[in-house]
Simulated assay, not measured.
Amino acid sequence: MIIVDFFEQNIDRRNTSSVKWERTKEVFKTDEDVLPMWVADMDFRPPQAVIDALQSRVEHGIFGYTFIGDTVGDAIVGWMSKRHNWTIEKDWIQYSSGVVPSIGKAIQALTEPGDKILVQSPVYPPFFSMVKSNDRVVENAPLVNAETRYEIDFDAFERSLKNGVKMFLLCHPHNPVSRVWKEDELRKMAELCLENDVIIVSDEIHSDLILKPNKHIPIASLSDEISAQTITLVAPSKTFNLAGLQSSAIISSNDSFRKKITTIDQQQGAFTLNAFGIIAMEAAYLKGEEWLEDLLRYIEGNIATVKEFFAEHLPELSLIEPEATYLLWIDCRKLALSDAKLNQLFIKEGKVGFNPGTSFGEGGEGFVRMNVACTRNTVIEGLERMKKAIKS
C-alpha cells in the first residue's frame, strides 16, 4: 500500500547546498523566485533503511580509508537478478563516483582521440560534453518524433555506424524522451553494432524507474555476444535519490574492457568510493524495493495530474507518453514561440524553471523537460504557474 503521507512531506531543501533549490537563480539567470522543476533529483527522503545504515556509520565516528566489500557486489547481483532478470557475475562489477564519470572512463579506455561516438538526440547533455571534452567527435542519429512517442531511425543509425563510429552511447531508458526500448529495438541496435564492431556503452541509470506496463531489458542480457560488446552503467542515485553520495557501478562481462578501465582508474588515482556512498548503495539495493514500488505509484499519480491539467487547462501543450523516469518531455510547439521566448515566458511570467529542450541537442526545439519527483502540491503549483504564463 502506498505511503502517501511519506511522499507528501514538504521538506525544505534550502541551506543544504542543493543544486536544484539553491542554484536556480544562477542557472536561469534571473532574480525571480523561480520554482525549480529541472535537475533530475527528487524532493523525497530515501528509504529509511538507507538513512539508518548511514546514521549507524556516523555514530561509529571514524571515517578512515574504506574498501568496497563483497557484500556490495552481492547486493548489486541480487538486484539485477530480481528487478531485471539479468544474471551477472560479481567480478563483472567495477565502481565509479557516477554514471557521467563512467562514460568518461569508457571513452578514455576504449577509444582514441578523434574517434567518432554515436548518440541519439535529443539526449542527456553530458552525452555530448563527455565526447567533446575527451577530444572525440559526436556522430548523431536523431530519434524520430512519432507524436505520441519517439522511435529509432534505423537507416540513419546504420549509416552512422558505417561512418567510422567506434562507440555507441545508448540512453536506456531514454532521457529526456522517456522511451523504454523494446527487445526488438535493442536487439536490432546491438546486432548492427556487432556487425560494425562498435562498442555499446549503455546508460541504464533510470532502469529502475519504469512505469507500468513497460519492462526494462538490459541490452547486455540479450546474448553472450552482445554482453561481450557492452558496458552497462547503473547507480542507485536516481532510483533512491542518492546522487549526492556519488556511487555507481560499471558492469561488463568483457575482461579486456574491465582491464582497460582499471588502467584509467590507476592513472587517475581512483581506488574506492566515498564511505557513505558504499553503505547507501548496499542498503538501497538490499532493502529499498518496497519504498521504490511506493515511489513509482506516487510518480504515476503525479503524471496523471499533469495529463488531466493539460487536458482541462492547457490544450496548447502535449505530453510525450512517459514510459519511465519522473522527467516529462513536454511539447510546447503549438505556442509558436522561439526557444528563447519560450524559456523566458516560463521564467519571467510563470516563475517556474524547466530544462530547455535545446539543451538536449537536435530535436529538442520547442520542448521543455519537467521534473515531477516532488509533492503533488508542488506539481500543481508548477502547473498553475505554467497556466498563468501561457494565458498571460
Results as ranks from 00 to 15, higher is better:
202 S>L: 10
202 S>R: 10
203 D>A: 09
204 E>S: 15
205 I>E: 08
205 I>P: 00
208 D>E: 07
208 D>V: 12
209 L>I: 15
209 L>Q: 15
209 L>T: 15
209 L>G: 08
210 I>M: 05
210 I>T: 13
211 L>K: 15
211 L>M: 11
211 L>W: 07
212 K>H: 14
212 K>L: 10
212 K>T: 15
212 K>N: 15
213 P>G: 14
215 K>P: 05
215 K>N: 13
216 H>N: 08
217 I>C: 04
217 I>F: 03
217 I>R: 10
217 I>M: 09
217 I>N: 05
220 A>G: 06
220 A>H: 01
220 A>W: 01
221 S>R: 09
221 S>E: 10
222 L>D: 03
223 S>F: 05
223 S>G: 12
223 S>W: 07
224 D>P: 05
224 D>S: 14
224 D>Q: 09
225 E>G: 00
225 E>Y: 00
227 S>E: 02
227 S>T: 03
227 S>M: 07
227 S>N: 11
228 A>Q: 09
228 A>E: 02
229 Q>N: 15
229 Q>T: 00
229 Q>R: 06
231 I>M: 05
231 I>P: 01
231 I>C: 02
232 T>F: 05
232 T>D: 06
232 T>A: 11
232 T>S: 13
233 L>M: 06
233 L>Q: 05
233 L>P: 01
233 L>Y: 07
234 V>S: 05
235 A>L: 04
236 P>H: 07
236 P>S: 09
236 P>K: 12
237 S>C: 08
239 T>F: 02
239 T>S: 12
240 F>E: 06
240 F>Q: 08
241 N>H: 05
241 N>V: 10
241 N>T: 10
242 L>P: 03
242 L>F: 10
243 A>Y: 07
244 G>R: 13
244 G>P: 04
245 L>H: 11
245 L>G: 04
246 Q>K: 12
246 Q>Y: 02
246 Q>N: 06
247 S>Y: 06
247 S>N: 07
248 S>E: 07
250 I>M: 11
250 I>S: 11
251 I>H: 02
252 S>Q: 03
252 S>P: 01
252 S>K: 01
253 S>Q: 11
253 S>I: 08
254 N>W: 10
254 N>Q: 09
255 D>V: 11
257 F>E: 02
258 R>Y: 02
258 R>I: 01
258 R>T: 00
259 K>R: 11
260 K>Q: 12
260 K>C: 07
260 K>G: 07
260 K>R: 08
261 I>C: 01
261 I>M: 12
263 T>W: 00
264 I>G: 14
264 I>F: 08
264 I>A: 15
264 I>P: 08
265 D>Q: 09
265 D>I: 01
266 Q>R: 13
268 Q>N: 14
268 Q>S: 11
268 Q>I: 01
269 G>W: 07
269 G>A: 14
269 G>R: 14
269 G>M: 13
270 A>I: 15
270 A>S: 06
270 A>P: 00
270 A>V: 15
271 F>A: 03
271 F>S: 04
272 T>L: 03
272 T>C: 04
273 L>W: 05
273 L>R: 05
274 N>L: 14
274 N>K: 13
275 A>N: 08
275 A>Y: 09
275 A>P: 04
276 F>P: 06
276 F>K: 11
276 F>C: 06
276 F>R: 14
276 F>N: 06
276 F>V: 12
276 F>I: 09
